[in-house]
Design a protein around this nucleic acid. Structure first.
Lengths: 353, 353
DNA sequence: CTGAAAGCGCTTACAG
DNA sequence: CTGAAAGCGCTTACAG
């Protein structure tokens, strides 16, 4: 038994399908009597409109596609949560497609979205995809969050990774640290590269030697990196990790190695995932309001779909949040009840684009 | 300029739309010459088929809907990752809808999926939604993961929460702990209730007094619960938290309060999220292979869509993984390089349903 | 206020 | 091998 269609409802209510459609969409004039009959028929038949068919007529799907690279820990769940909240408030659905770590996969994912979504949010930390998005998506509105740090002349949100990294290093330098290592994100990832570039530049500006170890944005990779650093003869006295996930991994590795954080090694991460404020010592980081950024992205895309003119390149400036992992003066935990009482914020003057 | 349609391609290639369709779907016979002309036209026009229209004709969307309660930390990102991997391998898309903490919201989310998806995976830890899923979804295949622990006679995957909780308590009792507290999950959540029931039953069986404090499955709620427990006169010597997220929160609260884990308080969680093995001390937990469960759910739903007969109620039995948080004999960290070397596994004889 | 009809962009028997 | 035509389930001017 197939589900009821609008025709079944029309027959049972003894009206035309046009009237059923009007009642259901609250569009166009209908008698109260007609209305009641239609509603009764809908009820009786347990009719639910077929959104695919509706989409074909209206050429609107009320669905937004999100192309993600991969799901590293809490960053992406926070981001999706923010998008989902906004989507529901605006009557949109979210179709997610993740694990696109190379441009080809991302491109085929984008193609297969046509006719399925009204617009796309593309997180493509790999160079090619930015272009792909514009070409492949055809006339579909696309909001880029590709982390390139370059204004492409199309609607986008970028994080000031470079400025954030500089702020991280300057903070550590100000604490008197000199052997500052960097745990890098995956090669070829534009976010990771921008953070590394900021690190290198700030170190050069401070006249300090650099020390970079590879990572992959995962906790496990951060842990490995931490083990390597802890074992070095010229062990660093501070570490700036390209994201919080890795910073947490490294933190644990240092503690396992018997090192004290921040006394022996100060730590700074990037992102401010929920976990950052919870680990001990709490992690100093460059805060991005992740869920908020997701919400904003979704809302902006919906405005774009509503054909708002928009080619802006919005820059999110991460904010340095100093916590115990880089603050020897922090009172020991236990004196400070809640998780966030040991937070102090510094404003960050980011780079101009 | 609107995107090219199949008619545009047909005209340019000077064939019928039927031929274009055949070429594109690799279905039906076509001359190589026709094939080439069509492909050239597709290329020239940058044609991408409109999946909405295709869905309407074939009544297949190649999309699966996932209804989630809310995104608490890593559990759901792991689950979605597993589903996404399987979906892509099978040529399916994933449409996710989260934050459905009450039955009404879940039900409207389910309705709006009609015509948009070929089947549904419903995680509804609240009672009503299980019925809703069957009614509302009409003839659409639905795989339930509602955590009720009851075989509803429809395709489902349930976690043996009760058995897992019993195993957790028995483990703590075997260690000689007597004042074993439970940090409960959100009220009305079936998973949480089953875990609590297992705790209460096992405690009664051991002749021990119970001690329950509320939580909400989040790290922050676990931390608050931990603070409360640490402050009590009859402070527990062991805690079983209804999930790892809360266990980690409580662990940090205990450490902030100057308590040693596991010496003063042993800890056991539930889920085995990636973080569980990384915190210090590493967390003993009831392991569910989360991503694997997600993959399995997706694959099973796709089989259902392919009209496989299936009314099985599959039971996932969590496995007790003993780590340092409940094992005073564990060598101190630092002697044990990698994160997982301090893991020992015990087989768990779960309850029969 | 209401209905008949065209159309959204595809696929799929059915003839030829 | 190929094309004309019907149909998937809706919406939306257009008449009436």
């Amino acid at each position: 038994m197939k589900p009821a269609t609008i025709r079944d409802v029309a027959e049972r209510a003894d009206v035309s399908v046009a009237s059923v459609s009007r009642v259901l969409n609250g569009a166009g004039p209908v008698t109260e009597a007609t209305r009641q009959r239609v509603l009764a028929a809908v009820e009786a038949l347990e009719y639910v409109p077929h959104s695919g068919a509706r989409s074909l007529s209206t050429s609107r799907t009320n669905t937004v596609g999100v192309i993600l690279p991969d799901l590293y820990g809490e960053f992406f769940s926070e981001l999706i949560r923010g998008m989902d909240v906004a989507a529901r408030a605006l009557g949109y659905h979210l179709i997610v497609s993740s694990s696109h770590d190379d441009a080809d996969e991302a491109s085929s994912a984008i193609r297969s979205m046509r006719g399925r979504v009204d617009g796309l949010i593309v997180l493509s930390p790999h160079l090619g995809a930015a272009n792909l998005a514009s070409g492949l998506a055809g006339r579909m509105p696309v909001l880029l969050m590709n982390g390139g740090g370059v204004d492409t002349g199309r609607p986008s949100i970028i994080i000031d990774n470079h400025g954030g990294a500089v702020a991280a290093v300057e903070h550590l330098v100000a604490l008197g640290r000199r052997r500052i290592a960097h745990i890098a994100g995956p090669a070829g990832n534009l976010e990771a590269e921008a953070r590394m570039a900021g690190y290198l530049e700030a170190m050069a500006a401070a006249g300090l030697p650099t020390m970079v170890v590879d990572g992959a944005f995962t906790k496990a990779s951060g842990q490995e990196a931490g083990e390597k650093l802890a074992a070095r003869a010229d062990r660093p006295d501070a570490v700036f990790a390209a994201n919080d996930n890795m910073a947490v991994g490294a933190l644990l590795a240092f503690q396992d190695a018997g090192l004290r954080v921040p006394e022996d090694v100060a730590m700074v991460g990037f992102d401010d995932i929920p976990l950052a404020g919870l680990v001990r010592p709490a992690l100093t980081t460059l805060k991005i309001n992740i869920a908020e950024t997701g919400r904003n992205a979704l809302e902006r895309l919906v405005r774009l779909i509503g054909s708002a003119a928009d080619t802006a390149c919005e820059v999110v400036r991460p904010e340095l949040v100093v916590r115990a992992s880089s603050n020897p003066l922090t009172p020991p935990p236990g004196l400070s009840g809640a998780a966030h009482t040991d937070v102090q914020t510094m404003s960050l003057e980011g780079e101009k684009l």
